[in-house]
């Protein structure tokens, strides 16, 4: 296995085009354990972190551009990003320990294509776009379209993500992410849920997105959530309001979980409802606080 660290997009695309067995990486927090676990080693690994576009972080023209190879620790320390997308930063901040935070990236978290990736539900809920470069030039895709199944993406062999473009939040809009793990740290999400809520001047929900992790082969959006929550003033979950049951049913309808070493399908269905409620409440409270 050889290692290369190109300093431009063109150089990287050239390397990937020339080496069919090449793979890109940024934090290597998934790649190295997978090799340790017996996955065949790529013939070439291409380190994306020295390409300027992949480590850029800025807001411009109504969008945030977040480099795909920025370590989570940098994202969580960024005040502007945290203010704009608290849920995304929560998700990024939950990828592993402090040590992992020093390495793990949004691009890697997405392209590892695990249904349990913590930063992916908030990216999807936020309507983020991935900027993808490759032999065919640059293209963009909705984050929700990048992963097509466990360990499988829609990117071709020469392609990689340079950055994410995320619409800047409007007034009255915010997000939240929560996951469940059996310990307090170091685990992969058994279930995760992100919510983005926009409220009107009276604090009523105008638009909602709820996205779940680890309950299906890919992260899934609860498409019925917006309809259920629209027009509601979202309080703390009390169990009395019927719409919470509707949301719960909508969540369960989206779940297609499995029994595995981290939890049972039944457990995931139950806890997905719990986390969906909790993140909706948090996102709505944050949204009202922006008014």
């Amino acid at each position: 296995m050889k290692y290369r660290a190109p300093t431009s997009i063109d150089e990287a695309v050239e390397l990937l085009s020339a080496h069919p067995g090449a793979e890109v990486f940024a934090g290597a927090t998934d790649l190295i354990p997978q090799i340790q676990g017996g996955r065949p080693e790529p013939s070439l690994v291409v380190d994306l972190k020295r390409i300027p576009e992949t480590v850029r972080l800025e807001a411009e023209n109504g969008f945030w551009r977040v480099g795909a190879a920025i370590p989570a620790a940098v994202l969580t320390a960024h005040e502007g990003l945290t203010a704009a997308f608290p849920g995304l930063v929560e998700g990024a901040g939950l990828i592993g320990s402090d040590q992992i935070q020093g390495r793990a990236t949004l691009g890697g978290n997405l392209c590892n294509a695990s249904p349990a990736a913590d930063s992916v539900p908030p990216l999807v809920a936020l309507g983020a776009e991935a900027i993808i470069v490759g032999r065919g030039g640059e293209r963009s895709a909705q984050v929700s379209e990048v992963v097509i199944g466990p360990s499988a993406t829609s990117l071709d062999q020469s392609e990689f993500i340079t950055e994410f473009r995320i619409p800047a939040p409007s007034r009255g809009s915010s997000d939240a992410y929560e996951r469940f793990i059996p310990r307090t740290e170091m685990d992969i999400a058994v279930v995760g849920a992100a919510a983005r809520i926009r409220v009107d001047g009276d604090g009523r929900c105008e638009e909602a997105a709820v996205v779940l992790a680890a309950v299906a082969p890919t992260v899934v959006e609860v498409s019925a959530a917006s309809g259920i929550l629209e027009g509601r003033v979202i309080p703390h979950y009390s169990g009395r309001d019927a719409f919470w049951d509707e949301l719960g049913e909508a969540v369960v309808a989206c779940c297609n979980p499995i029994d595995d070493k981290r939890g049972t399908a039944e457990y995931r269905r139950k806890v997905a409802q719990v986390l969906a409620r909790r993140t909706v409440v948090t996102a709505a409270r944050r949204a009202r606080e922006t008014l």
Binding site: P33, P182, R183, T184, D187, K261
Partner: peptide, 16 residues
């Protein structure tokens, strides 16, 4: 064995 590592063999961590 499905969990032969510290990721899924869950020993307590300090924050637990």
């Amino acid at each position: 064995m499905e969990n032969p590592g510290f990721l899924d063999y869950r020993m307590p961590v300090a924050s637990d």
